[in-house]
């Protein structure tokens, strides 16, 4: 799924991450987290015509995602790639009361609906070959509900485990400074960091680095990331960085 997706990603991944890995894509705003995820997923789907993926968005609408993808040359097989807007869904089911706050029961309901769409409850995958899920982003997902943080982590952990059991490879997008440890780092199998390197002598350069990937042989170096006419491309390693800032 990874090695032959973005051009040059095989320079970082020497082997494929196991099916069902939960992979966090972390970086500050504007570091192409969503676009990289879309690019990896769509590339995989084009090669596997009988498989499907679900991209769960919270901050942006489906139309906005599709526009952004088109603008950087990412083509997606529409009948295999479902972009689902759960913030809008939540709005549809919330009572119209000004002071109403969605609590843990709404969290459970939304997770249940996502799980149902992914076929996590059935002995077979009801949606037929749903192989990938992406959540964009974990930060905004958590903001949809008012509930105890530890309980939310516990339930997310359980959800991740069910994704692993079903061998659904998942991308969890997190907006933030990759250097700042968050508890969820320990709940995932892999962490891909994306950022922008700013040195005084050169123009800012985007990079991608695999911080961890369980069960996978991979390069630890940061690699330059460029948007070319052919889409997103991994090019040269960034050596001797002093000022990596996501």
């Amino acid at each position: 799924m990874f090695r032959d997706s973005l051009k040059g990603l095989d320079r970082i991944f020497r082997t494929e991450p196991p099916e069902g890995s939960v992979v966090m894509v972390v970086g500050k705003p504007g570091t192409l987290k969503s676009s990289i995820t879309h690019a990896i997923i769509s590339s995989y789907l084009w090669k596997h015509g009988d498989e499907k993926a679900m991209y769960i968005t919270i901050e942006e609408s489906e139309e906005s995602h599709r526009r952004n993808m088109a603008s950087i040359g990412i083509a997606v097989p529409n009948n295999q790639y479902f972009i689902k807007d759960i913030a809008s869904f939540e709005q549809e089911i919330l009572p119209e009361k000004e002071d109403f706050v969605p609590d843990e029961s709404y969290f459970r309901l939304i997770i249940k609906e996502i799980s149902r769409s992914l076929g996590l409850y059935s002995s077979t995958n009801v949606e037929g070959q749903m192989k990938i899920m992406a959540l964009d982003s974990l930060n905004s997902f958590k903001n949809l509900f008012v509930m105890d943080e530890r309980m939310m982590r516990y339930r997310m952990q359980d959800f991740f485990q069910r994704l692993r059991n079903k061998k659904i490879t998942s991308f969890i997008i997190v907006e933030g400074d990759p250097e700042e440890l968050i508890p969820e780092y320990f709940m995932v199998d892999g962490i891909i960091e994306v950022g922008i390197e700013r040195s005084s002598s050169q123009l800012p350069r985007r990079y991608l680095m695999v911080r961890k990937m369980r069960g996978t042989a991979h390069n630890m170096a940061p690699y330059m990331l460029e948007i070319t006419e052919d889409g997103i491309e991994i090019t040269e390693p960034l050596i001797g960085l002093k000022n990596i800032k996501g």
Partner: peptide, 8 residues
């Protein structure tokens, strides 16, 4: 509209 926000 509501259904398709989440169901495939």
């Amino acid at each position: 509209n509501g259904i398709t926000y989440i169901s495939s």
